[in-house]
């Protein structure tokens, strides 16, 4: 056991760091793109404040197209785009772009769902009070949707961890890559078990944290 730890700890540790890096950076950019996108798609819906059929339909279509493609295909499909954007298609840097392209529309959809759940009556009450649309979006809709948004981001983060497992294919490393290269290709079963164990802990931890924050924000 001790021997196993001594031999593998640095390697697994390195993989954990890589996974955290990939998830952290791509989550950051995905939120940056996904949340405004989610707000925009809600506001341009028929009957909403910035109703715009064209923008709404285009966004809808775009999100659906990207969400139709499995990550492993997306990873290769957008290689030229990745190269154009960050100058490389390999390593952690090279995998961030497809991870963001994969996750941002997902976050936008989850955002949309939680924003639509905000009671229309509250928005009407604030309109009746003469409050600006911009302030209603920021201080009413986003505020009331916070618990749902947090749960959505939790789901997105866990999905992102799953996607990073395929990052090994472009040499970005991470836990998934470790399990595949050592556990599967070299039949080091123990490494496989250790990786899976760490992933379970990680996902459990994130979900519990998400649930706890959401419950705290919900005030019910």
């Amino acid at each position: 056991m001790e021997e196993f730890i001594q031999e593998w700890l640095p390697i697994i540790g390195q993989a954990v760091v890589e996974t955290f890096q990939m998830v952290g950076i791509s989550l950051f950019f995905s939120i940056l793109i996904g949340i405004p996108l989610g707000i925009l798609i809600v506001l341009t819906r028929p009957g909403e404040a910035l109703e715009n059929k064209v923008v709404y339909q285009i966004l809808n279509l775009l999100i659906n197209i990207v969400r139709s493609i499995p990550f492993i295909i997306l990873l290769f499909f957008i290689l030229p785009f990745t190269k154009l954007l960050v100058g490389t298609t390999i390593g952690v840097k090279g995998v961030i772009v497809p991870l963001v392209v994969y996750t941002a529309p997902y976050i936008a959809r989850l955002m949309e769902t939680s924003l639509l759940e905000v009671d229309k009556g509250i928005i009407e009450a604030y309109r009746a009070m003469g409050i600006k649309t911009r302030q209603i979006i920021w201080h009413v809709m986003l505020r009331e949707a916070r618990p749902g948004i947090i749960l959505g981001l939790t789901i997105a983060t866990i999905g992102l961890i799953g996607a990073t497992a395929m990052a090994g294919l472009v040499g970005a490393g991470g836990l998934g890559d470790l399990a595949y290269r050592f556990g599967h290709l070299r039949y080091e079963v123990d490494v496989m078990y250790a990786t899976v164990f760490i992933l379970i802990i990680l996902v459990q931890g994130i979900q519990s944290l998400g649930n706890r924050i959401a419950a705290k924000l919900k005030k019910e």
Partner: peptide, 14 residues
Amino acid sequence: VGMIFQHFNLMKTA
């Protein structure tokens, strides 16, 4: 022009 509603329309999170 103040308004009140059947379902109160308060913010749950506040």
